[in-house]
Design a protein around this nucleic acid. Structure first.
Length: 366
DNA sequence: TTCCCGTCTG
DNA sequence: CAGACGGGAA
């Protein structure tokens, strides 16, 4: 039976031609990114973890700062969990910081000051999935192993006009095999980075620049002028509108009451202005009632005033309207995970993006 | 408003 | 295999 698999396989001769054209293009067009000047496996690891879910322009501003603070595995392992998280604040997907820290700790506990050098061993550390293990092993250690990220999936989905989601099932296998075929005798570090670079700068999700692509002559999507139809992805779940009420309690010194979010769930262990859970509009009660519930959970007593400011924020598939109310806090002191802090102090501990947004919106209304 | 993305967990 | 997890670019 014909599944189209055989004709999707890239033969050795075509693979060599594709790799040669790609590498020529990469030598000319590669972006000059800071981590590409590093040969330190630890620094490359940090860059790869940051780049997993965060855009290059953001990582560019944060990578060196992280390394200044935690210059090697030893210092990262010795660091306090909350300091690592604070250094990560704003980058999102905070489990990455936790895994990074835990991996460093595991290595230090084994008496190691360096990463293992093979993808198979890296894969055993927290936060190392197939992609990151392949990326670090090939870029830092030169191992002949693929590193298939979303860019690579998209490039091959278009080149081969793959009929289904390239991250799943048979198409996923074809992408992996294609990347491996191109690896051939090329420098794995350059080849992998060139593939990702092509996806990041030319074969982009929207409006690909096919006029700049070294592969247009062989690209099945381009030959049909159907670049926009690839990669095929399943429909996304619609975002849900929710509301969250936020308490702004101030003391006479101008500090505000902040709380640390619990472990697990979103924004785990980051600091925020105390806020209710995300409530669908249908079930949300009056702000004063919802905030009274929150006060009870936090062991406080609040007199709730009218709304001060409201901001919109999105996380995962929630569209959040965060409505901040001034409250008078009548309880003394602050239990664990609650603290009276000047905004700058709170910022240093690591704020959620929503709270940073709220704080920025506040002064304009006061 | 839509879309993007690695790893882990259920 | 499906869903959780963030923030920002297009």
């Amino acid at each position: 039976m014909s599944t189209g698999v055989n004709q999707d396989r890239i033969g050795p001769r075509v693979a060599r031609a594709l790799a040669a054209d790609l590498l020529d293009w990469y030598r000319e067009q590669a972006r000059d990114l800071p981590w590409r000047h590093s040969r330190d496996p630890y620094a490359i690891w940090v860059s790869e973890v940051m780049l997993q879910q965060t855009r290059v322009e953001v990582v560019t501003g944060r990578w060196q700062a992280f390394l200044d603070r935690f210059p090697d595995i030893e210092s990262l392992a010795a660091a306090d969990d909350s300091d690592v998280l604070a250094q990560w604040a704003g980058l999102g997907y905070y489990r990455r910081a936790k895994f990074l820290h835990r991996a460093a700790t595991e290595l230090a506990d084994r008496g190691l000051r360096d990463l293992p050098r093979s993808a198979a061993e890296l894969r055993l550390l927290p936060g190392f999935g197939a992609y990151t293990a392949g990326a670090v092993a090939s870029i830092a250690f030169g191992e002949r192993v693929t590193a298939v990220d979303g860019n690579v999936e998209r490039v091959f989905a278009r080149l081969l006009a793959l009929p289904s989601d390239p991250s799943r099932g048979e198409s996923r296998r074809i992408v992996g095999d294609s990347a491996a075929a191109l690896l051939g005798r090329a420098d794995p570090k350059d080849l992998n980075q060139a593939l990702m670079e092509l996806g990041a700068t030319v074969c982009t999700p929207r409006s690909p620049r096919c006029d700049l692509c070294p592969w247009t002559a062989r690209c099945r999507a381009h030959s049909r002028d159907a670049q926009a139809d690839y990669p095929r992805r399943p429909a996304r779940k619609a975002a849900v509108d929710v509301v969250s009420f936020v308490a702004i309690a101030r003391d006479s010194a101008g500090r505000m009451l902040f709380r640390r979010r619990p472990d697990g769930g979103h924004n785990a262990r980051l600091w925020e202005l105390p806020s209710t859970a995300l409530l669908p509009h249908e079930v949300a009660g009056e702000p004063s009632a919802e905030l009274a519930v929150l006060a009870g959970e936090l062991g406080r007593k609040w007199l709730v005033h009218g709304p001060l400011v409201s901001v919109r924020h999105s996380i995962t598939h929630h569209r959040i309207r965060a409505v901040a109310h001034a409250v008078e806090d009548r309880a003394p002191g602050a239990a664990e995970d609650l603290a009276w802090l000047a905004p700058q102090e709170a910022r240093e501990r690591g704020l959620t993006a929503a709270t940073a947004k709220l704080l920025a919106a506040l002064p304009t209304l006061i």
